[in-house]
Design a protein around this nucleic acid. Structure first.
Lengths: 273, 273
DNA sequence: CTAATAGTGTCTATTAGACAGTATGTT
DNA sequence: AACATACTGTCTAATAGACACTATTAG
C-alpha cells in the first residue's frame, strides 16, 4: 500500500502490528553514612550505602530490590526515575544518570519487561524523616578476588551478600560480562544493576566532581577523602589528595570542634554558587 | 487478593494491566575510510565514517536514519543489534556497546516507542561486497564552537549537516543536554544518537584499545595515528603518540612499499590472539 | 634534486607517589 | 601526656608536550 503523505500514513498505522512489552525503571540510590568507630574516642567513619526496598508482593516476595516502577505510557522515560525518587525519598533536584538497559527475555517471570536503570547520588543530610516504610539503607562492602566480586550488604538488622563473576568480553577494552553466581536475597537481575552502578560511580569519581552530590554543603577534607576512599576501596595519600582536591573546593573560615582531635577547616564545593 | 506462592501469583497475572509499548534498537556503525588527497603524489588520508540508511517508507520517508529495527518479543535486547548488523553488513563478531536508551513520549510519531542505541566498530576491509542497497557510508566532519556542534555528513553523492546545542546539565560533571537546533535530513532523534556515539567513541579511544576494532590486521603507526586524529579532531605529536602506542602494538618485519615516500613497518595489535 | 612521510633523541614542565615531619584539638 | 586527626614540605619517579633532527623511499 502506498501513502501520499506522512499524515496519511500515520492515520492508517496500526500500533499493534508488533507485539508490545512493558518498561520499568530501577534506581540505585547512593549515599554515604557515618558509622561509629570502636575506638576510645568514638570518632566516626564514612560508609558507602544504597537504598533497597523489601518486596511485599509477588514475584520475589520478601526479597530486596531497587526502588523503581513502571514507566507510564504518557511519561518520558527520564521522568520516571525522578518520580520514583520523589515518592521514595521525597527529594527533588537529585543527580540522576542513566546506567544501562536490561532486556533479557526472561528477566521478569511475569512477562516481557525491559528495565532502564539509573543511579542517583544524594546527600543524606537533606533527607527528611520521610522514607517509605519498606525501604532501608544498606552499607556496602566490596571485595574482589580473581574476577569474582562479593558484595556485602548490611542495614543494621539484616545482612547478606551476593557474588558476581566478571568475564572479560574482549581484549580491546575492560568490559565484562557479569554472571550472578550466588544471590539469595535480591530480586530480578538487580544484583547486576548494583554492580554496574558501583563500577560507574568508581569510575566517574576519578574524573568528575559527582562526589559533591553526596556531600553536605560544609565538609572537611578528611571527610571528603574518606568518601573517596570508601568508594574507591583503597587508601589515598593525604598530600596527593589535597593537591588534587584543592582546585575543586573553597576553604571557609568555619571549623569543626569537639571531635577529639585537632579541628579542621570546613570547605565548600567551588562551583556551587 | 493474596497468593500462597510465586507460581500461583504468576498464573493469575494479567500482563495487560499496564499499557505496553514497543522497543527498537538503533546502531551507529563507525568505521574509517581512505580518501585521496589532492597532492601530486596521490597519498591517502583517513576519514571517519558512519553507515546511514535512506528510509523508503513513512514516517520520515526519504530521510536518513541509523540502521535498526524492532526488538522481537522473544529476542533478548542485546541480540537485536547483532541481528541488525548481520542483515545490514553481513558481519558477525563485531564490537558492540550499548549507548543510551531514548524514551521521550513523542519521539516517534506512530506510537510510543523506546529505542536503545548501540555503537558498533568495524574494519571496512572485512566488509564483503554485500551492504544493503539503501545504506551508504557518510564521512563525518565535526566542528564545535560555543557549545554548538555542527556535524557534516557526506557520502559522495549527497551532503548535509545538522547542528546540536550542548547545554550543561549540572556543575559537577560535564554532562550535557543535547538540543537539536538544525536538522533537515535525519529521521527521529537519530541526530542525538550520532552525537552521543561520537562523544562516547572520542572518550573511550583515550583510555581503551577499542580503536583496534576499526583497524585491519596489519597497519602502520602513521595510519593508526591518523585514525586517532580524525576521531579526536586534533593533531597529535609523533613522539608522544609512539611512546603511548608502543605498549599496545607489535612490530612485524613486513613493510609498506610504493607509497611515494619512506616505507614504514607494519604493526599488529598486541592482544590479538 | 625535492616532496613526503617514517622514525628518534632530548630537554622541560607538570604531575603522581612516597615519606617524614609539624600542628592542635580532646581525653 | 597520649591519642587522633589536620596539614605541610620536599624528594623522586613517571609522564606529557615541544621541538629539532635524521632516514628513506618515489618521482
Amino acid at each position: 500500500m502506498e501513502y501520499k503523505s506522512e499524515e496519511e500514513f500515520l492515520k492508517a498505522y496500526n500500533p499493534n502490528e508488533f507485539e508490545r512489552l512493558s518498561l520499568t525503571t530501577d534506581i540505585i540510590i547512593f549515599s554515604v553514612s557515618d558509622e561509629q568507630v570502636a575506638n576510645y574516642r568514638k570518632t566516626s567513619k564514612k560508609r558507602f550505602s544504597i537504598l533497597l526496598v523489601k518486596r511485599n508482593t509477588y514475584p520475589f516476595k520478601d526479597k530486596y530490590c531497587l526502588p523503581g516502577g513502571f514507566v507510564g505510557i504518557n511519561e518520558n522515560l527520564e521522568d520516571a526515575p525522578i518520580r520514583v525518587l520523589k515518592n521514595e525519598t521525597n527529594l527533588q533536584n537529585i543527580y540522576l544518570e542513566q546506567l544501562y538497559t536490561y532486556g533479557d527475555v526472561h528477566r521478569d517471570p511475569r512477562m516481557r519487561i525491559i528495565s532502564t536503570s539509573y543511579m542517583a547520588l544524594i546527600d543524606k543530610n537533606k533527607l527528611n524523616e520521610k522514607i517509605s516504610k519498606d525501604a532501608s539503607w544498606f552499607n556496602l562492602d566490596i571485595e574482589e578476588k580473581n574476577n569474582i566480586v562479593t558484595i556485602y550488604l548490611d542495614n543494621g538488622k539484616e545482612h547478606f551478600s551476593f557474588k558476581i563473576k566478571k568475564i572479560l568480553k574482549e581484549l580491546t577494552t575492560d568490559r565484562y560480562k557479569y554472571e550472578i553466581i550466588e544471590n539469595e536475597h535480591l530480586a530480578f537481575d538487580h544484583a547486576l544493576v548494583i554492580l554496574a552502578g558501583i563500577e560507574r560511580l568508581k569510575n566517574k569519581i576519578e574524573y568528575t566532581d559527582i562526589v559533591f552530590n553526596m556531600m553536605p554543603k560544609y565538609f572537611t577534607l578528611g571527610e571528603l577523602q574518606q568518601v573517596y576512599e570508601v568508594i574507591l576501596g583503597k587508601k589515598l595519600l593525604d598530600p596527593a589528595f589535597r593537591r588534587i582536591i584543592e582546585k575543586k573546593v573553597l576553604k571557609t573560615d568555619k571549623m569543626t570542634s569537639g571531635e577529639g582531635h585537632r579541628p579542621s577547616y570546613l570547605y565548600i564545593y567551588k562551583n556551587k554558587e
